[in-house]
Nucleic acid binder design. Sequence first.
DNA 1: ATGTCGCTTTTTAAGCGA
Length: 268
Amino acid sequence: MRIATWNVNSIRARADRIEAWLDRSDVDVLAIQETKAKDENFPWELFEFAGYEVAHFGLNQWNGVAIASRVGLKDVERTFPDQPVFGKGKQEPIQEARAMAATCGGVRVWSLYVPNGRGLDDPHMPYKLEWLRVLKDHAKQWVKDDPEAQIALVGDWNVAPQDDDVWDIQFFRDNNMTHVSEGERAAFNAFIDDAGFVDVVRPRHPGPGVYTYWDYTQLRFPKKEGMRIDFQLCSPALADRVTDAWIDREERKGKGASDHAPVVIEIG
DNA sequence: ATGTCGCTTTTTAAGCGA
């Protein structure tokens, strides 16, 4: 079975790309982030024609996650338990459309779009750290309750855990940039060190120079200036079954590409 | 030498978010 995660940066703008990619990638499950759509604007027929069931969680033009599957799509869950809220402007704080789960082919797949911290001193940063902490605490418990649990936490984590995960760490340091701070890295690494999850892609594709995201600005892609911020973290029992993994850098090429590349794993 | 997208709205440009 093949599981992919992909921040598509608008499901509508990327519809043709997604259709073509499903056609050639042969994935069984696709976890999507940044659909930027409400249900009424979601291209349901795209997935139907391609032979996939799909579930979507989108509240407005921001965020939005989905899971498409051709190996079953059961027990869809929107938001994780105790998911922290955030208030935009004067509006009531809400649980944003950043997490959803479904059981596909026996694997509990979580499609995650981790909040962007925006700035080291921005209110979005503590929100991001708390969001990750609460999810990690639950993930740890899921595995504690069932050591054989088949869980994949996949998506855009908005964290570059190692210096090699950005093209120039000094540039990030000099400009007080997010994604590489101690707090963000600790929040991410807790999934591995504390909850016992496994990054199944990095060992097969170590850096430097291996990225999943390239900013649209500054010609970052042709200059090979990217970031590794999209990950598939597997529960221990699922990690044992992984036979292959890759980042589809080709999909970042050409006109109309998302700024993120799909990340794929193969399970035996 | 320069340099992006995509969404929305009391739209046809500006603001927001990444």
